[in-house]
Design a protein around this nucleic acid. Structure first.
Lengths: 345, 345
DNA sequence: TTGAAAGCGCTAACAA
DNA sequence: TTGTTAGCGCTTTCAA
């Protein structure tokens, strides 16, 4: 049974032409109406809107983008979605872009440079209005693509290194140094480090470097260390803590490369009646709000995730709106939260 | 100082034409090489690759998509990234799509129907090869768009309702019923429910409905309930648990709508020396691997997140490759994990 | 305020 | 194996 003409299921996407035919208005004017451009009479506008709505027309952005040479997408390239940190950055980005015509599109690299290259290539081939990318370390090929893209590039989360264009982040080296200082000042001396077995997590590495550097200044060094990969971070935190304490029972402080494993360590200590922070101090990194629910507030350092996302998005938005710019540099200061797992002086 | 011609920074993106000129090969053949189509001599291929590489050419997918009427994107529409569940579904999707030419693009709705409409409209206007969308409940406008899109639509995570096209999920009603049965069988009688204050979290609601229904069959009802919104789920779990136990000290079981608040509840009980599962039983929902790190293994029900993602991606991939289909229905069975917070019989 | 023509950068289809 | 031609569906530009 053939359908009524105006509702015919043509099994092909509708085009401007269809709306034009249905409304008796030229394609060009239909286009104007649909894009909300002025200079269209109210009558014409009404006719067009009516036709578009009853047909269920959805514009083809591909054609629009090709013709206008404008794409309202912002590529956001991050290592992972499973680490809560990145969704938080995403929220900051979305929040700001929601007020603009721009839209974030996420690409995930799994901390693999080859994947980063591939994802970047794919993204750039859609000619986005800007790229927000985690970290300052990229392969030569990636850097070349980013430089050649001719669009705003904002590298985020880290400020220790040479940005390609703009950068928004914190200094992880400094974060490590400050935590080390706080630990030493509190009187701890036998310090252990627990982290991920991820040579490509440059930010964690920089924190570690800053940490050891500041310890060295105090005449100390990392007494023992332990690394993990994969699995539930909370569980790994428990296990690693047990392992390292068995091996080096004289440790009096454990610095973890993230809050999740630190929380696992804390649970281990609570379970085993280890006096925290008296006998053993603990600290993590990130300030994830999961920590609010733990029995004891963990010492950590807030990495300003949402703020980083917001600032990065603002830079892209500003540039997309034509306001000149380039090479913006926003360095945020991570806030030390002593919690209850680090002795007070 | 003008640049050397082959490396000129034209400040406009390179086109096939540039590669064609640099290599002395026709645009069409360049296009063939770059897309890896056969029927190109090794010599020509080499010339083209060389030219493309030294120029740093990145194809314009917008033009390609318009010309070929093919877009290798799959829109994935989910309520949130902060709930760990969705990143896990994403992993399943990526894993499968990585083996194909398809690429996921994520849109986030924040559980708001109006946002879902907007995100859908944006996505559909890029003419993706398929849409994977969480849930079976959508506004009329959203449903109309999905139906009219003329591409594979896979609704995921839930199987209780009428799908538009394909569906991959679990029955949350059944999940609720099964948990209720297990609780009753274990001998608990005064049962409390703790969940989110989210009228639009249909899946949580269905679990609750199934739960009360099965309790009713056993002649029981939910004895008290407590809801929360926002904040750290772990902390809210602690707080709600304290609140509900103060109000109804005779409760002997607490069923939580997700594992995170259940974990908070568990920590509260451990802190306060409440005998779990003897005096009070606890259960959550999801089977997030965070739970592995808790001192006591929480009773929960695995929601098959990764598997759902994989199946959904497979359906889209299969359809994109032309293999006919439509209306696929995959209902997975959530696995009950008794853990140590529900008495065994 | 509206319309007609040209073309965005690429690929399908066909020809050589 | 390679090249030519004609669009894809829209927007820009210019004319009416």
């Amino acid at each position: 049974m053939p359908n009524d003409e105006t509702e015919a299921n043509l099994n092909r996407p509708l085009t401007l032409r269809d709306v034009s035919a249905a409304s008796g208005v030229s394609e060009m004017t239909v286009s104007r109406v649909l894009r909300g451009r002025g200079d269209v009479s109210a009558t014409t506008r009404a006719k067009v809107m009516e036709a578009a709505r009853t047909l269920g027309y959805v514009p083809n952005k591909i054609a629009g983008a090709l013709a206008s040479q404008r794409v309202n997408l912002v590529a956001v390239i991050i290592p992972s979605l499973k680490n809560l940190v990145f969704p938080e950055v995403m929220s900051g980005i979305s929040e700001v872009l929601d007020e603009t015509a721009l839209q974030p599109v996420v690409g995930v690299t799994n901390y693999e440079p080859e994947r980063e290259e591939k994802v970047l290539y794919e993204m750039i081939s859609w000619r986005p209005s800007g790229i927000i990318i985690a970290g300052l370390e990229h392969s030569d090929a990636s850097r070349a693509m980013l430089k050649a893209a001719g669009i705003p590039i904002v590298e985020i989360m880290d400020s220790d290194g040479d940005p390609i264009d703009a950068v928004v982040g914190i200094s992880h080296r400094r974060a490590g140094r400050e935590m080390a200082r706080a630990i030493v000042e509190a009187g701890y001396r036998k310090i252990g480090f627990l982290g991920t077995k991820m040579p490509l997590d440059f930010r964690a590495r920089k924190r570690f470097e800053g940490f050891t550097e500041a310890l060295a200044k105090a005449g100390l060094e990392v007494h023992d260390q332990e690394f993990y990969e994969g699995g539930s971070a909370l569980l790994k935190g428990r296990e690693m803590t047990e392992t390292i304490l068995n091996r080096s029972p004289d440790l009096d402080f454990l610095y973890y490369s993230n809050d999740m494993i630190a929380a696992g360590g804390l649970l281990h200590c609570l379970d085993n009646g280890i006096d925290v922070p008296g006998r053993l101090g603990l600290a993590g990194f990130n300030g994830v709000d999961l920590l609010d629910g733990l029995p004891v507030r963990l010492a950590t350092m807030d990495a300003c995730r949402a703020e980083i996302g917001q600032e990065a998005a603002r830079i892209v938005a500003r540039r997309a709106s034509g306001t000149a710019g380039g090479g913006e540099r926003v360095v945020l200061t991570p806030k030390l939260q002593l919690g209850e797992t680090l002795k007070r002086r």
